[in-house]
Design a protein around this nucleic acid. Sequence first.
DNA 1: CTCGCTTTAGAAAGCGCTTTCTATCTGAGG
DNA 2: CCTCAGATAGAAAGCGCTTTCTAAAGCGAG
Lengths: 369, 369
Amino acid sequence: MAVTLADVAARAGVSAATVSRVLSGNYPVAGATRSRVLRAVEELEYVVNGPASALAASTSDLVGVLVNDIADPFFGIMASAVQSEMGPEKAGGKLAVVCNTGGSPERELTYLTLLQRQRAAAVVLTGSAVEDEKHTTALAARLRRLTEAGTRIVLCGRPPLPEAATGRADGADGADGEETGDSTAPITVAFDNRGGARRLTEHLLALGHRRIGYVAGPVERTTTRHRLEGHRAALADHDPQLLAASDRLTVHGAYDRSSGYDGALELLRRAPDLTAVLAANDTVALGVCAALRDQGLRIPEDISVAGFDDLPFSADAAPALTTVRIPLHEAGARAGRLALGRESAPPGGVATVRTELMARASTAPPRVN
Amino acid sequence: MAVTLADVAARAGVSAATVSRVLSGNYPVAGATRSRVLRAVEELEYVVNGPASALAASTSDLVGVLVNDIADPFFGIMASAVQSEMGPEKAGGKLAVVCNTGGSPERELTYLTLLQRQRAAAVVLTGSAVEDEKHTTALAARLRRLTEAGTRIVLCGRPPLPEAATGRADGADGADGEETGDSTAPITVAFDNRGGARRLTEHLLALGHRRIGYVAGPVERTTTRHRLEGHRAALADHDPQLLAASDRLTVHGAYDRSSGYDGALELLRRAPDLTAVLAANDTVALGVCAALRDQGLRIPEDISVAGFDDLPFSADAAPALTTVRIPLHEAGARAGRLALGRESAPPGGVATVRTELMARASTAPPRVN
DNA sequence: CTCGCTTTAGAAAGCGCTTTCTATCTGAGG
DNA sequence: CCTCAGATAGAAAGCGCTTTCTAAAGCGAG
């Protein structure tokens, strides 16, 4: 039915091998032959059969990108950046497969299997990891098998896998010292969530805030933990008392608007005299703002609010949101290049992306009562 | 290296054919044999070789989803909905490949080629189409070839291809009446942009607005045209004079925030006495709001603003944005089901999704000067 | 001129799976 | 007790490409 290599070969008066070589360009072919082949390709509108070539070459041109939620710009931006590095133009047209895990560990594993089945050339895992013994182990196992199959793994916006989870499967391995291997270990592009959260809290402290609420993300995620750690480190540095009080001023929820809304109400219930609320991210912050406004509080006159991530809409909120900027696009692009092997791995396999405090209108000194 | 069908077969003491049949489940296999095979699969942690099976079966389990901009929730929501219909759980785990065209016609074509190369099972094209003779023809040709190759095509959020563009390529086709064929024609899930825009404008007219500015999207896109047509139809119905004036009160830009900002300033320059501004979509509306505020105007007291799409953040804007809701998730999910053939095509191959006016705080009666 | 080297092209063996076509083994009906 | 349909399983031929391995030229040197 469809046009095959053989058809092109026949038309160009050469063998299939030659056509293949012209197309992949990894073998010397005489100029005249080459152009004859290329013309035949044009004339027949030949399109390579991906599966066939993937089978023969035992590697495909698919690259998987796992995200928690495509509809969330946080992931959208990273995914788009990853894809921009492999676009049809660049680097011989890899196809980025964006997979939506919805934050579910099971789906994460299932997608990895699906990608293994496709013999993906690389996989980029974005977003926070779930910190659960069992899942971490299962994930490490899957990633190991992918690596063994020649798939390059890049983690973007999540910490490296804990060493402990990298247990080997095939025990009969002789000497157990050097875990060398041709298989590349996962590369990580991590975000400095701790540092960002710390600077953000320091900013509030500097403004004079002392009763600071925190609407955090889901407990089990690394990102949640790191941001919280940064926050608490800043508090501790300033005054150990604050640290002690912070437990009661912290609530957990999802990374969405309604968690922010509910979380803010809960915090207000616990401590009506709050002067500032930190949110797990910008989306949550928007929910917090809505709740506070609904309670008749003005931002920032009555209470300050800050987010995290600096998504595009944050600058547009009214008032413009104070937040911590993460260079998502740059990080995604870098992850993409690492995935394609177009950039060499950073020393230690971990690159940390700096975050930057964006002080805007939603934070101000607390009102003097 | 990797575990193959043959390994599983050997372990289960059956032939490769049997294993294949157990896994695809489209052929009777005795219960005992089946479970023996499944156990072997488990024990060996066997993962099918996708390319190999795609080659042999001449169809893959990839489904392409083309979007203009993944980082834009408008597309993110649709993409996620499409994917939710094929997720690892449902329908035998198809893999949705989200491709970011960036709105470029060339990239759209290139991605279609890439998907054809992968022998994608289906392709969903989302978002507005570019209305350009040449591109439309090229697109129609590509889609025809995909269809011929057995790839199902679904358009989501864009109008059906103009009949004219569906020119056939191979002329020697005998009778030219019936263009029958086993190949399914593209199915469309269109948005009622015209109706939505019309109702939105009627809403403003009903509030008493007469000088209404319009910050439209890129000229060459169908969505832009349809929304503008709805707007103008409402004006014409109300008072032909208004229609005449509307040309001067319309500016075009991209579907982004800065276009909204710039567009609003331009409109204000042309007609300082505007009482309302309609934006191409919600993102643009946010830009419009920012510009108006920067000019010292209050929304909605001094001037009303409305968007389109009803993205999640619109309800959170301050003031909450009046807009037109498009059920993006439902539309995407339906497109996904159509792509998988799990839902039969609507009569005529075109389903139109209703849009709904969401009147919120950003629109109010004009100030009485 | 012939030898041996480089350059270029073809032959052919798979890659791992699907799927016809065949073979075997049941058990029911005559 | 034999025959034949029905149910299962296997053999084997590809699917379209990549990639060794091999062969045929082309060419400077001895």
